[in-house]
Design a protein around this nucleic acid. Sequence first.
DNA 1: TTGGATAGTCAACAAGGCTGACATAAAACG
DNA 2: CGTTTTATGTCAGCCTTGTTGACTATCCAA
Lengths: 167, 167
Amino acid sequence: MSDQLSPGRPPLLFLTDEELRKGIEAMFFAYRGFTADPDRILDQHGYGRAHHRALHFIHRSPGTTVNNLLSILGVTKQSLNRVLRTLIDEGLVEARVGTRDKRERHLFLTASGNVLEQELAEAQRTRMRAAYREAGPEAVRGFRTVLEAMMDPEMRHHFGLLKDPES
Amino acid sequence: MSDQLSPGRPPLLFLTDEELRKGIEAMFFAYRGFTADPDRILDQHGYGRAHHRALHFIHRSPGTTVNNLLSILGVTKQSLNRVLRTLIDEGLVEARVGTRDKRERHLFLTASGNVLEQELAEAQRTRMRAAYREAGPEAVRGFRTVLEAMMDPEMRHHFGLLKDPES
DNA sequence: TTGGATAGTCAACAAGGCTGACATAAAACG
DNA sequence: CGTTTTATGTCAGCCTTGTTGACTATCCAA
């Protein structure tokens, strides 16, 4: 469909449809590995991936608002609310009414929320660490570079640059 | 939890928890981008990601059996069957009863199945191509190296080495 | 030839997406 | 001050795609 061989210029063999197909499948299989370990832990606790995502980003940005989380996760408020509700009801997350703007809820992990988040994060880090170590620092730089180029621009904005808690 | 600074040896700064966290979030955001374009197309046709995966791997290995597809996709046969059923009923996939073993169904894309598969694949390749081009060949090598190291060993086996059709 | 393994199908349930409608409270604005 | 907008929550209902369990058809080996 779109292989290109530009005469005179470098052949760009890494852009052939076949190479792209391998990249696509690599993403698919790797993502499965990436989520496999947390999935097992979540299952034991009766949670799902959606809970993991919420715990992760609340841990990363304590005090973040529901709206902020929504735009990071890219789901509807109804969908997030269901997950957040169980996490709050079961005491893993605390939602404090904003002091400046009382419409907002600022989200924090409780002690037990932190325990689970750490368990999940450490499982995921362990796999990532093994992969990084095996691949080496140069490959890791390339990995990050390609991933960032693959994000939607809006997500690239969220990446590494999150809104902070209540001032 | 596990940052390491080994005195005398290189500092391994790419293995700090903070670097690992960035890698984890990069995977999350990039995977969203990776699936965004096909998702839009699938939506127009009334299909989901599961249909895309089936079309992709049947395209890649024409004549593959349901069982083979099962082990690649890592879902239950009941889950795959539902998706396969709609694709067969709507004429995108053909299932031929095996000649040697009549229990087996060998799967092929029909003409219209091929059309949709190509549309999906081209959309995904376009994003991947842009990311590859932006990142450059060396980064792409690193990307692939880390992804392969992140897969479960069994998936690494499926990757680049698929079973063939009915001999 | 029969019993166990293998391939696939059907039914029913659960998680977690989605839309739409609606409620409330607070902020912002004219 | 009154109106509008914003932030959040909730109810109801739908869809996709995962799951388990039960079942049928076929093959193969004892």
